[in-house]
């Protein structure tokens, strides 16, 4: 994706997307762009957030037309090279003790198989990767961590998992993983 893409998200939102798949520059761009929208203090903007590769904003379309806000987002996009943005300050390294045995890892074999790894290699790979919180979402406080080695780029499950316990470590799409710690 050469330039970022601006799309509507729902009737009253915009999504500014910096990549088709998770990457370090796209995630940094999303974080920096959201911070810039917050700093701009536009009165019709009611809320902002980020996903892995996008900045999102919700606004009041009765106050400002979609086209006008999109124009402002366009101008902000062109004002700098967002993919070159530095990481936010004040980051910390956490070590999260994780159990991969028995009932604690009901889908580990399935995931390892999809990644073409043995169970032991899968555990070693997941434990060696140093990841960063790319975004928080889906459920309250749930961090999406990335990136994992390429082997973990495995397809999504066809059905929703009805219940994932707090503390579970899950592998999501594009080598990002999600940590259910809510």
């Amino acid at each position: 994706m050469a330039r970022a893409q601006i799309r509507t998200a729902g009737f009253d939102g915009f999504l500014v997307t910096f990549g088709d798949a998770l990457s370090e520059p796209a995630n940094r761009a999303a974080l920096a762009f959201r911070a810039a929208v917050e700093d701009a203090g536009w009165p019709e903007v009611e809320e902002t957030s980020t996903s892995l590769v996008s900045a999102y904003l919700r606004f009041d379309p009765f106050q400002t037309a979609h086209a006008e806000l999109q124009g402002r987002l366009d101008a902000l996009l062109d004002s700098r090279d967002w993919r070159a943005a530095p990481l936010p300050a004040n980051r910390r390294l956490w070590r999260v003790p994780t159990c991969f045995n028995g009932d604690h890892a009901p889908q580990l074999d399935q995931a390892a198989h999809a990644a073409g790894l043995s169970r032991d290699d899968a555990v070693a790979s997941l434990s060696a990767a140093r990841v960063r919180v790319n975004t928080i979402g889906f459920a309250p406080g749930m961090p999406y961590l990335g990136e994992l080695p390429e082997a973990w780029d495995i397809p999504r499950l066809k059905q929703l998992s009805a219940n994932v316990p707090a503390g579970a470590r899950c592998v999501a799409i594009g080598g990002a993983e999600a940590e259910a710690i809510a």
Binding site: A9, G10, F11, G13, L15, T17, G19, D20, A21, L22, S49, S51, L52, V53, S54, Y56, R58, G137, F138, Y144, P155, R156, L157, K158, Q159, L160, A172, I173, G174, A176
Partner: peptide, 19 residues
């Protein structure tokens, strides 16, 4: 299909699951 990156969802979105 099932290989798009996780993205912001909002109330009203019509999400099409794997089936």
């Amino acid at each position: 299909g099932l290989s798009i990156v996780s993205e912001v969802i909002v109330p009203g979105d019509i999400q099409v699951t794997g089936d």
